[in-house]
């Protein structure tokens, strides 16, 4: 196949890919390096990091707590639904599954405004922020778990377990639960990473005291030096990158956050 395409085409194709990949990686790398430049002096220092952590420590903590809550709540809502979609489908279940994916196609700003208009009396409540983020995380939880359950013949495996004399508890512990572990871990990583980096919905639903890092970056960028901005970006990346590496390892296909960011 390659011979027929010719070496020239081969070279052009890879050159384009390498250029795009470099353009994707170099700017964030530059931003992180920028962080090590002290605000005034032309020397390397971790001062910017200290400043960011002192100023935005609360918001980092809030982000972590919010992401943990969003991950847990998305799983609580998404996993049972995914189980039903895959194994107990009923009339209308396919439509509900499609409805759950609709937010992924909707712009975050519009959804945020809708949530604000819908719950005017709750304005500033962090639950609205969590709920808004969850519109973009629950679909992933549902999709990841439902896809796995659809690809594993769980019904048949449960039947096998029954013919081998396994009763309910043993079946759940040895057959159903182990098969759910992987998709649930995958889903929680995705949801956590999404919540951590989310901007479009969070920016409008956040309050100055309850501002996740993804939204707080805007304030940092507009009111601080390049070094501080770089440090904030680096701290943001430090939170997101491990999750992404784990995602890549768990799932061979790259993951796209789409509307979520």
């Amino acid at each position: 196949m390659i011979e027929r395409w010719g070496r020239k085409r081969f070279a052009i194709g890879w050159t384009m890919t390498v250029v795009i990949a470099l353009m994707a990686v170099l700017p964030p790398l530059a931003a992180v390096l920028q962080a090590f430049r002290a605000p005034q002096a032309e020397q390397w220092s971790p001062g910017s990091f200290q400043y960011v952590i002192e100023t935005y420590g609360g918001c980092l903590l809030f982000s972590l707590r919010l992401a943990a809550f969003v991950a847990l709540a998305s799983l609580v809502i998404g996993v049972p639904a995914a189980y039903a979609f895959a194994l107990h489908p009923f009339r209308g279940s396919a439509a509900i599954e499609q409805l759950a994916a609709v937010p992924l196609a909707l712009p975050g700003v519009s959804v945020a405004i809708a949530v604000i208009v819908g719950y005017a009396q709750l304005r500033g409540n962090w639950l609205l922020l969590a709920g808004g983020q969850m519109l973009y995380t629950v679909p992933y939880a549902v999709r990841v778990v439902a896809n796995t359950l659809r690809n594993v013949p769980l019904r048949t495996l449960e039947d096998v377990a029954r013919t081998l004399g396994a009763h309910g508890v043993v079946r759940f512990r040895h057959v159903v639960a182990p098969l759910l572990v992987r998709p649930v871990v995958l889903a929680s990583l995705i949801v956590f990473a999404l919540s951590w980096g989310e901007f479009n919905v969070s920016f409008l639903l956040a309050t100055p005291t309850q501002m996740p890092i993804g939204a707080a970056l805007y304030g940092t960028y507009t009111s601080n030096s390049g070094a501080v901005s770089g440090a904030a970006t680096a701290i943001f990346l430090a939170g997101a990158l491990p999750l992404l590496v784990a995602l890549q390892l768990l799932e061979r296909r790259p993951f796209d956050f789409g509307q979520g960011v």
């Binding site: 890919t17 390498v18 795009i20 990949a21 470099l22 994707a24 990686v25 700017p27 964030p28 530059a30 931003a31 920028q34 990473a193 980096g197 989310e198 901007f199 479009n200 993804g214 970056l217 805007y218 960028y221 390049g226 901005s229 770089g230 970006t233 943001f236 997101a240 992404l244 890549q248 790259p254 993951f255 796209d256 956050f257 960011v261």
Partner: peptide, 27 residues
Amino acid sequence: LKVALRSALTVPLMFSGVIVGFLTILM
């Protein structure tokens, strides 16, 4: 190098608009 290239391409996918804006100003 395919795996490395693919990983590099996923980096921008996790950036929100403000980060991209900041990177653009930086460059």
